[in-house]
Amino acid sequence: MSRRPQGLTAGMLIGPATFLVLGALVAPLALLARYSLNRYDRANFMVEALTPENYLRFLDDPFYTGVLWTTLSIALVTTTLCLLLGFPIAYRLARSQSRWKSVGVLLVILPLFIGSTVRALGWMGVLGRGGLVDSVVGAVSPGSSFPLLYTSFAVVVGILSINLPYMVLTLQSVIEGIDSRIEEAADSLGADPSRRFWHVVLPLALPGLATGGVLVFILAMNAYATPLLLGGARFQMMAPMLFREYAVNNNWPFAAAIAFILMITTLTLTAVSSAFVQRRYKAA
């Protein structure tokens, strides 16, 4: 048996992953950070510089801060809805003893097999003028129409349908980790189902709710195809706007600055909520 120093083996094992992270994540980010400090020029596009003007332009213009605000609102609303809708589903799945449980899990995962663009197209068929909802409303009361497409409602529904499976799967594994006897103990001590939920299940599931919430929030903040297709031309969220600055306007420095503002906002909110939950959890 040949002996190799343990550190060397460990180094060889994590080496490829480290290299990948450095090459595929850190380097492009560093490049992007550099771009965001460059100057845009109509003739030459990107000019080497060290200026905060891209960031200042974003923060000074109510249009851009409005887009950030819309993105934040949509992300917060969808995250809240994901938590409210996802928890009961996850709870039922986690506590299910039925042989149909795996079918239920499959049904939750199934939407993930279809890309977000295709699913947004599906929602367009449901919510658009002459679509499913519109036709039904038209049939019930002739002459009236009910187009939901190109509203923030359509965007919320679209993002929700994409993010819900992630939330359910995260919560399910966390709830499965809570010993069902603990709930029975609460039960036998006189806690009715709602108090059992508030005093025992919810506090114990809180770390899972935080993880799922963060995951879903990040996905919503960065949603691209859904707001683009379901929100329409006048509905603006960060990711589609970023792409337009980059590809249509060819303003790489400003696009890079938008990217960083989006990233920093997401990271800050995630960190704040995690810290809050952690403190709550310790205190509880």
Partner: peptide, 16 residues
């Protein structure tokens, strides 16, 4: 169970 007034001690203790 929550109306039965029976105290239960579990094998795994099931403490909160």
């Amino acid at each position: 169970p929550y109306r039965r007034e029976m105290g239960m001690v579990f094998q795994s203790y099931a403490l909160f």
